[in-house]
Amino acid sequence: MAEQDTTKYIVSTNPHAHSGDSVQRIMLDVIIALIPATLLSFHFFGWHAVRLVTACVVGCVGIEVICRKLMGRDLGITDLSAVVTGLLLAFNLPPSLPCGMALVGCVFAIAIAKQLFGGIGYNPFNPALIGRVALLISFPVAMTKWHAPLNTARWAALNWVDGTTTATPLGAVKTAISMGQPSPVAWGNTSMLNYMLGNMSGCIGEVSALALIVGGLYLLYRRCISWHIPVAYIGTVAAFAAILRILQPDANMPVLFHLLSGGLMLGAIFMATDMVTSPLTKKGMLVFGIGCGLLTMVIRRWGGYPEGVSFAIILMNAITPLINRATRPRVFGRKSVRA
């Protein structure tokens, strides 16, 4: 109540106690959890990561403000959800993408995927992913131009030196396999350690599995996410990859490579666990995670794109209401789910 009338008491229905959690606090926790990955992206991609993160966060918040004003609603940016969307969108962009294109992604993410549906809570799809996919389809060349991480010495390099472009590990291996060539990437422990740390080409935020896992553990500790979606997602990918590897060792990549080299960690820990677009029940979350894992692997193995995390999550977002419906718990004292 805005009114400050000390002679009158507040009256509401029960309960009069509250856990003290808020949407804002959850979003703040997600931002905190993204800090390690953000810092590592700055380390690996230097100025370009700083530039993209700033552009996306400012762009998303700005577009949210404009949309809310146009719709005549209260701004509601204090819930920090636009900041989270901005960060996640930036994480999903290749380092050399121009800021203008990133802003187009912001418009898709906030204006079309979120506010057109009514704002926070009403969007059926993860806004950041819609932003990324819209960019991927609109600017296929710019969105698939990858660079090897910079040396720390060249941290402040403002432009990419010609010839530094390279494919992502997933892309390189997929191309090689499809052409029947030997894998261009070594499966040794050193390269896996590099993938773990993030010393590889890829989207600025997806490269460091370690930083993302640290962030995920923080979210688990804060109870912002439950283990169900990440574990089901990563577990399914691992199981699927293991089966493929056993059946056709030459035509498939090792399990650890699947887990670490692409956007799986970012997707499983931060994108698929987006509350609004994932199921309500624990059972539903498991179904959702398994579905994401299967679709990711199908796209990676048989699809046109080397990476399938974004499409997999968006497709599963679409059936989240169905999963909710199918996984409603049996009500206490009733035999069946329905009345």
């Binding site: 109540m1 009114e3 009338d5 009158k8 008491y9 507040i10 009256v11 509401s12 229905t13």
Partner: peptide, 8 residues
């Protein structure tokens, strides 16, 4: 006048 501050 109102007798209390309704919240809901």
């Amino acid at each position: 006048p109102r007798k209390h501050l309704y919240n809901g």
